[in-house]
Design a binder for these strands. Sequence first.
DNA 1: AAAGATTGAATAATCAATCTTT
DNA 2: AAAGATTGATTATTCAATCTTT
Lengths: 174, 174
Amino acid sequence: MAPDIDTSAGARPAPSLDDPLLTTLGLFFEAHAGLALVLERHLEAECAMSLQWFEVLLRLARSPGNRLRMSDLAAQTTLSTSGLTRAVDRLESAGLVRREACDSDRRGAFAALTASGAERIDAAVPVHLAQAHDLLDRTLPGDRLETFTDLLRHLRDALNPAAAEASVIADPDG
Amino acid sequence: MAPDIDTSAGARPAPSLDDPLLTTLGLFFEAHAGLALVLERHLEAECAMSLQWFEVLLRLARSPGNRLRMSDLAAQTTLSTSGLTRAVDRLESAGLVRREACDSDRRGAFAALTASGAERIDAAVPVHLAQAHDLLDRTLPGDRLETFTDLLRHLRDALNPAAAEASVIADPDG
DNA sequence: AAAGATTGAATAATCAATCTTT
DNA sequence: AAAGATTGATTATTCAATCTTT
């Protein structure tokens, strides 16, 4: 018979509070929060732009005709369709994006980069990349960054099959 | 003299829109969003609990006396101190957490796990872990999960030195 | 009836200001 | 005056409902 380890009053049994997978998940969430915070602060200070705006403008800049259907854009970001509608409202108010009608399906709408939006994202990308390289090349030197990317791709493919399939066609993110 | 690649009307120069680091960052954010979504849905369905509640309760369950100062708890989550105040308000309304006074410093307050809160997190951890293992052991088999954890720790340490230092003392996340 | 997009209502996150204690 | 915690005001996000077009 195995003896109880902890018999002190009021102690609860520890089901699996020390499973290393909890540590992995915790590290993942902490790393994400830290990275988003640092990147956002830099982008905000240097380019007066949130990380969300950067991501939306970048998607548009990489799309044919610098435009994308609202629903496609929503699928490529972490926003719901209503969330994207509001985000595009704000981008349109700032003059960085313009809505365009869709001829082939009049229910649809495009979000299109304006000249001003193109200027802003073109200016922001090198600033963003400089900081990201400064941070990551130093933190994950040698081939570690490539390994990290490879592991992330496996994870993303398992979690978001839609994005994985789309990347085979158009390579929005690997 | 290097010739221009694209001389079509209206074409903008592409500064570095294809830098592989943009792909890495995109994959990281997509993987995070996907993982958080999947874990949250499962936890919500099986344990009627958000991922945020899970994380707060888990931190408390792993702390001596099942309690932690509000400011320490905020530092260990992705919330601001005011955000944590509100989160603890909700947890307290649900009866999972109780505020306790701090004798040594009467400005301070503890958030402490209630018996009900302990039951709920004890029940949720195995459920959460089962899903996480099912997902990750299959996606990153062999030693890939350990490699991934190692890379995340390096990244977290670079981005959040405070958490890295704390982990040397108390091991909240590796 | 279903798809694309938007809107209203409800919930939650942050910053700055405030209050208490050190 | 500074630190710990909370509150008010603002902004942003989501779900469900709505409107138009297919």
